[in-house]
Design a protein around this nucleic acid. Structure first.
Lengths: 214, 214
DNA sequence: CTCCAAAGATGTAGTGACTACAAGATTGGA
DNA sequence: TCCAATCTTGTAGTCACTACATCTTTGGAG
């Protein structure tokens, strides 16, 4: 019962602004759209936009929430499971969802808009760093035998894997690809994912008995 | 003979602005100093500042140039040398120079100022990404047997190592550390460096004969 | 139903980084 | 000596974002 008409209207306003902004950004590019234009298109005051979203970039990354996934997956993984496997599976789930027909076009537009704006790329880097920190924390939580240094390096390695695969995905999925090429790219991407996570696993720090120093 | 009085004056102006800006930033923090204040303190027009430095952040990172080091080291390394070793040695050289008495206090102020400003942290992330790309290019140049994917992942791994060690360095060198503690921290840092680069080496992709897939 | 207080939405005025551009000052060289 | 290139400056403006006062809506108490 906590949520009355007032809160509902507030959320509606927020959603409206977010939707309008996303549409404008995808249509004309992030930098080419001003916050004032978003406000006008949503028929609200500029101040109202900033009441709901601290920065312009937040309008774009609203409700993506992908940064929380990996750490959550680690926390919820079955006891004793290799963290790399957890992260790999989570990554595959996410990327497969993205490539599922119906979502692919949307994601591609989203990705293109992002890579065309330095501001959005900068924000993505920030989000990636925050993700890294939450992953490091989750790793330490699950395995107190890790040193902080090793946990942070492992998290950074996962972030590196993710970034490299993200680039590869963009490279393998050009805008003018045919259906068949996409299928092939899909397979190629799965292979690349396995390859990169394999490399991560090789560099995975031994935690308990084994030590890497000869 | 290329450089006459005109060019000399221009460089002087540039240097003056950079010096004044750095001093102000270290004294009062990056965000608390406006470009207009820098201009006034350097006795030039605001426009002149922007004639020499495209953004405010460039005033801070001017002439650090640390991002070019690793790729250059790879290109200039003796033929056949393990790239990881090249990168590790380069990193150690840089960090040792930083910790040499006389430079330590300066570096610490620099570091503190940077971590206190979101804008500077964002810029550092951007520079790190550019460094990563130049490293990947240098790796491919030296070893055409690498795939682009592996080169990029390797570069990302090095960047990850560098970042983690940077954090560790800040953690090990608190502002109120005694001389003795610093010596100990120094040793600890060398150990951490060896440890992290050891992990990087384990994840280093096999290039020619050997392959990681069993 | 009435009225009040909280909370959301709005408008105004401002700051600060940065751009475009026109005009002034300096300098190298003919 | 004088011109043209180049460096510097000043003006006006854009845009993200903040502070703050005011207006409007809503939920609830009487």
């Amino acid at each position: 019962m906590e949520i009355g008409r007032r809160e509902r209207k507030k959320q509606q306003t927020r959603q409206l602004i977010s939707d309008v902004a996303t549409r404008l950004f995808l249509e004309r590019g992030f930098d080419a759209v001003t916050v004032a234009e978003v406000a006008k298109a949503a028929d609200v005051a500029v101040q109202t936009v900033f009441n709901h979203f601290p920065t312009k970039e937040d309008l774009f990354f609203d409700e993506t929430g992908w940064w929380a996934g990996p750490a959550q997956a680690i926390r919820e993984a079955p006891a004793g499971q290799d963290p790399i496997t957890t992260l790999e599976e989570q990554y595959l789930t996410v990327v497969r969802g993205r490539l599922a027909s119906g979502h692919l076009a949307t994601w591609r537009e989203f990705s293109r808009t992002m890579t065309e704006s330095q501001a959005l790329l900068a924000r993505r880097r920030q989000i990636a760093e925050e993700m890294e920190q939450t992953i490091a924390a989750a790793l330490l939580e699950r395995d107190p035998g890790l040193t902080s240094l090793r946990a942070r390096f492992a998290a950074a390695q996962f972030a590196a894997a993710q970034k490299v695969l993200e680039d590869e995905l963009a490279r393998l999925m050009p805008a003018d690809a045919t259906e068949e090429e996409l299928t092939q790219a899909n397979a190629e991407l799965e292979r690349a994912t396995a390859e990169v996570f394999d490399l991560v696993r090789r560099g995975w720090p031994a935690t308990h008995g084994e030590d890497s120093r000869g």
